[in-house]
Computed example of a mutant assay.
Amino acid sequence: MTFSLGPRATSSGYRLAAFDSIGSTNAEALMRARAGETGPIWLVTKAQTAGRGRRQRAWVAPYGNLASSILEVIDTSPGVAATLSFAAGLALESALKAVSLEACVRSSGSDDVTFRLKWPNDVLAGGRKLAGILLEAETVAHDRLAVVVGIGVNVAAAPDGMPNAAVSLRDLGIDIGAEDVFRALSEAWVEFRDVWDQGRGFRSLRRLWLDRAAGVGQTVSVQSGASTISGRFDTLDDDGCLIVMTSDGKRVAVSAGDVYFGTAASIGAT
């Protein structure tokens, strides 16, 4: 099976560049943007050898997993562009629900897998990391902003030795290929990208995201550099920051960090 866009993505003008193997789809997308590519274009592979996650961490992608990036060159500020990651999370959660339901129907199984969005950029299944998102942006010609949203999904295998437990679709009993996940993702991206609407629709996205969020109301610890903020995960603000209600009643807005919930929150805070 080969990678292909869904019909809505095709009719909306999206293009596709698929690779047998590549170092990093995000790096390739940024290189193309510097050379004049304006998108929208998806770059996708089942074998990524030099992927990276947040804070330049390695993103391990065994063969058969999905590594993809969407490149769009837009006229907006970096701060507004950053909220596009919430559209990506919603699109990914929607795509995963669609393919898992399809797989369950084919196998006459039961659709009992729930996917949750973990701030700021993960998708969880059963509390374990299934997928991650990395948004990068830089200014290109004519002061426009090249935005690349990298989306990786553990389809065939989950990497070992990660800071947090990981899981794959195969581990969950969902027999589906990376090509199927990508096709569904390309369709869902169009839907939630349209809701985002250059940042004007972020309040709608925020409500949808919170409905699917992991850990709302739970004990949370957020590590950002050398500092740790602990309390209760209250909500997101209108900029997409995580709001932590501390034990002394203060509401603290966190713009970036590693999040730990429940009993893991006390471990993460040590």
Rank of each mutant, 00 (worst) to 15 (best):
A87C: 05
N121D: 06
I70K: 09
A67R: 14
A95M: 06
T76K: 09
M31S: 07
R116L: 11
Q56H: 13
A58F: 15
V113Q: 08
D122R: 06
W42F: 14
S85L: 02
R34K: 11
V99W: 09
G89S: 05
L134V: 11
E93T: 07
D111L: 14
W42P: 04
N121I: 08
S107V: 02
R57G: 14
Y63C: 11
V123C: 04
Q56F: 08
E102I: 03
W119P: 05
A88T: 12
S21M: 05
M31F: 04
A67E: 11
R116W: 02
L130W: 11
S108W: 10
S21T: 07
T76R: 10
L101S: 06
G64D: 09
S85N: 12
L92F: 04
A81W: 10
S77Y: 13
E102A: 08
F115V: 04
L134Y: 12
Y63K: 15
T45A: 01
T76E: 00
A29L: 08
R116P: 01
L43W: 15
L71H: 09
G132K: 04
S85M: 04
I70L: 14
S69V: 10
R128C: 04
V60D: 15
A17Q: 14
R54Q: 15
G64M: 15
L92T: 08
T76L: 04
A81H: 07
A50M: 09
N121E: 01
V44M: 02
L101H: 05
T38W: 03
R54W: 06
R106K: 13
I22K: 11
A58T: 15
L101A: 09
